[in-house]
Amino acid sequence: MQIKVNEQNYTVDDDLTAGAVRDRIKADADLLIINGFPASAETLLHDGDLLILIRRGETPDAEELDALLAARHTPGVHDAVKQSTVGIAGAGGLGSAIAIALTRTGIGHLIIADFDVVEPSNLNRQQYFIDQIGLPKVYALRDTLTRINPQVKVTSAHLRLSPANIAEVFGHAQVLVEAFDLAEQKVMLIETFAARFPDRPIVTGSGMAGYGPANSIQTQRVAGNLYLCGDGATAAAPGTGLMAPRVGVAAHHQANAVLRLLLGCDPVTEKA
């Protein structure tokens, strides 16, 4: 019969128990999961079963992680994503969530730039932990990303981005993510990067404050190579603060737009 063990295909004899397969493939595994449910070693396997063998506390090696992602995402998608470099300008509510989504997607190289440190008030929406307060965001975020997938290369630039350094910091980025807070900074980044690299796409965010309907947040192409995620209107203001759910919706619109661009798909429509 055909089964999958840790996302890889195996042909094994009929009437085998999960324990017998464990002994052959990963004898030190102490946790067996069959088709999503913990199971005992005596459980009989059936054709088509998906068996996951885990040794508690063990970190999968690079090859294993790679195989897991390739199996989940299909090898074609995985290879394309793995060879990609993406720049993220700003590591706040948008940037930290986008970085995590792209890391889980198996992106090859992230360049993340931000001058800020983690403040207690950031924890309402930004992907930091209480024990990271006071750390520069780019270093705290790199630690988190490395805990998710140590294979992703993260370049942390702890600096204030300006027209003088944007081209240098993001010179290798195939796609740039704008994840700043202030409107003037968003505009400065886009103008500067577009002037230097007119053919490279930029994915920007504008209008995600408050708790208005999530469905009003959209991905649009607003200029040749510029994609905007957000409702385009709701600014952060007293009484309309930035909150985790809606900032997260906008961030994941941006992350998905990046993924589609890397795969040669149109971020806005079904077009491949």
Binding site: G90, A183, K186, G205, S206, A235
Partner: peptide, 10 residues
């Protein structure tokens, strides 16, 4: 001419 207006927040 395309003019894209930005608002703060991120």
């Amino acid at each position: 001419l395309e003019v894209i207006h930005f608002v703060g927040g991120g």
